[in-house]
Amino acid sequence: MKKNFMFVAIAAGLLLSSCASKKDLVNCQTENKQLTTSLQSAREDLAARTARVQSLEEQLAAQKAALAEQKKQMAKLQNSLDKSLTNASQNNVSIEKLVDQINESNQYIRHLVEVKSKSDSLNLVLQNNLTRSLSKEELKEVDVQVLKGVVYISLADNMLYKSGSYEINDRAAQTLEKIAKIITDYKDYDVLIEGNTDDVPISKQNIRNNWDLSCLRASSVVQCLQTKYGVDPKRLTAGGRGQYNPLQSNDTEVGRQRNRRTQIIITPKLDEFMELIGEAPETK
């Protein structure tokens, strides 16, 4: 009897120990899953922040290059003027005629500068209005810049879409609403939505490859701007460039993060821009 009691006691102890061990194992597995999710989220956030810093550095470099190009053009104009004066002196050309030619050329140059300044000013105002409307958190994932008279709004894919999908997620709604308001306010601009991916292959139902994914994502944004926020569809164009327009190498997570993006490209309507420029003066 005593032996049986001891056997039951030992069995009960082992059973309780087994239950406790199983419970500890489940707790460890749950904690490990949570830590893995947090680590992945931290990695994606770090990649996005690093990509943002690199984008700002590229903007600064582009502005410096543009300034250097302007100085170069001014030097060319000055050199051309010096040559004209030298030729006039050597060939006894009428000073009055030369002055007229110089004045006409200067007038045309001023005209072009005024047109470019007007276009740049409008685009800078558009850029500033959009940037001011976005929150600090949104600016971490939205890159706004003006390059050669065109406004580029670049949005990270993890902000816009569900992972590996072209469906727009809920957190993108507020940002797209602000962008749609700016687009609606500037009626003289056309809008191109351009999808871009990294080079990691994708194979899902109804999505054959990255070409499909980039086009479907651009189309989703276009339809969202039209149906939810009332942007005139005649101003919108959707296009996809797949993996073939990378900003950086796809060999790193940061590079892939930068390449997975959707760009909203806002440009002045071509016919109105040409009317601003007008015709060039005849060459004499």
Rank of each mutant, 00 (worst) to 15 (best):
R171S: 05
D199V: 11
Y229N: 07
L147G: 07
N27M: 03
Q145I: 05
T184A: 07
A61K: 09
I109A: 05
Q248W: 14
S214H: 04
V125S: 10
E282H: 09
A48G: 02
L15W: 07
K33C: 05
L276F: 09
M6N: 11
E194F: 13
S18R: 01
S55T: 06
V200H: 13
L122M: 06
T131S: 09
Q70N: 06
S105D: 07
A88S: 10
N129L: 02
Q145Y: 09
V221N: 05
L122S: 10
V99F: 15
N123K: 12
V222L: 06
V113Q: 11
Q73V: 00
Q90S: 04
L155C: 05
S41H: 05
N87I: 00
N92S: 06
V150L: 10
N32E: 01
E167S: 06
K178M: 11
V53N: 15
E141T: 09
S219R: 08
T50K: 15
E44H: 11
R171T: 06
T227S: 02
C19Y: 01
E104G: 07
N106M: 10
V150C: 06
L236K: 05
R208Y: 15
H111L: 15
Q223V: 00
A47V: 08
D45F: 13
S249Q: 04
T262G: 03
Y152G: 00
G149I: 10
A42K: 06
N123R: 15
S249F: 07
Y189A: 01
E137L: 05
Q63T: 07
T267M: 04
Q34G: 08
A173S: 10
G13A: 07
S94K: 10
V113L: 13
E282Y: 09
L77Y: 00
G240E: 13
M6L: 15
A9L: 14
V231K: 04
Q34H: 11
N210Y: 12
K22E: 01
G278R: 14
